[in-house]
Design a protein around this nucleic acid. Structure first.
Lengths: 133, 133
DNA sequence: CTCCGGTTTGACAATCGTTCTCAACTGATC
DNA sequence: GATCAGTTGAGAACGATTGTCAAACCGGAG
């Protein structure tokens, strides 16, 4: 913890590039397995373990968002860098990134009111999108 | 789907009572396995599968809240009946139920703005409680 | 009280998403 | 082209959760 690199150099391998690229090919949340399958169909053979590893890295780096389905499965989606939330269609998965000072302020004040520090929060909105209505 | 009971009668067995009672003995979120263990320590021997089943029933009935840990594990906690959210201590798990019209209004308006209907949402706030600070 | 049919239980197997292992491989560097 | 840390992938291992199914249980009818 004194002088070692916290993040060792990342090599831009064929597999990593393939995963990153695949992430740009859809706009909703997909599971690691889905993405693995998608890669296969495209002809980019990538091991399942590698897909998991890569998604993890991307998530840590804040380049993809991770959500949990009701069943506890992790699902991923590329995302913008700033803090935001999602409005997700329950039926087709169509996702809109949303943000706004209102919630941020509200959560902060609620936390402060109870003396909680280092506040973070998760918020997802679900609904039926216009196309699926 | 025509005349069958959607919810067959629930029998108040020893096991079910034990689980319900155990749920009142702590205020933070616990995993099914934790609760199973807790029951064992108390002397209330209940099968793990039964604990899972019972917690599921309770959750469906809205008598307990279910959350997912970062790792995807389901954790449970008894809760009040009305819609609310949680302010959870990252370090000790101490939980406060919070609510307020602000977020409810905000999510509704955001959803409306994008034409999403039948809106619901999940929101959890994490922080360090005063005792752990 | 006893019998009966549906409910519940629990030990154990089976799923399934995810992570681990480890030998083979790759790419940047000298 | 030799070197070496970072990577990969096949398959085993894991851990939470759910399914299976025979035995135990319960409450009402007789």
């Amino acid at each position: 913890m004194t002088s070692t690199d916290p993040t060792p150099p990342l090599r831009p391998t064929r597999q990593r590039r393939a995963v990153v690229e695949a992430m740009t090919s859809f706009a909703d949340f997909r599971s690691a397995q889905d993405i693995h399958e998608l890669l296969g169909e495209r002809g980019d053979q990538v091991g399942l373990a590698t897909v998991y590893r890569t998604l993890q890295r991307l998530a840590e780096a804040g380049e993809v968002d991770v959500l949990r389905t009701e069943e506890g499965e992790a699902i991923y989606r590329r995302c913008s860098e700033s803090h935001h939330h999602h409005l997700v269609c329950r039926s087709c998965g169509a996702t809109v990134e949303v943000e706004g000072p209102t919630v941020e302020r509200w959560t902060r004040s609620i936390a402060a009111e109870h003396g909680y520090a280092e506040v973070s929060h998760t918020l997802e909105i679900f609904g039926t999108c216009p196309a699926c209505a």
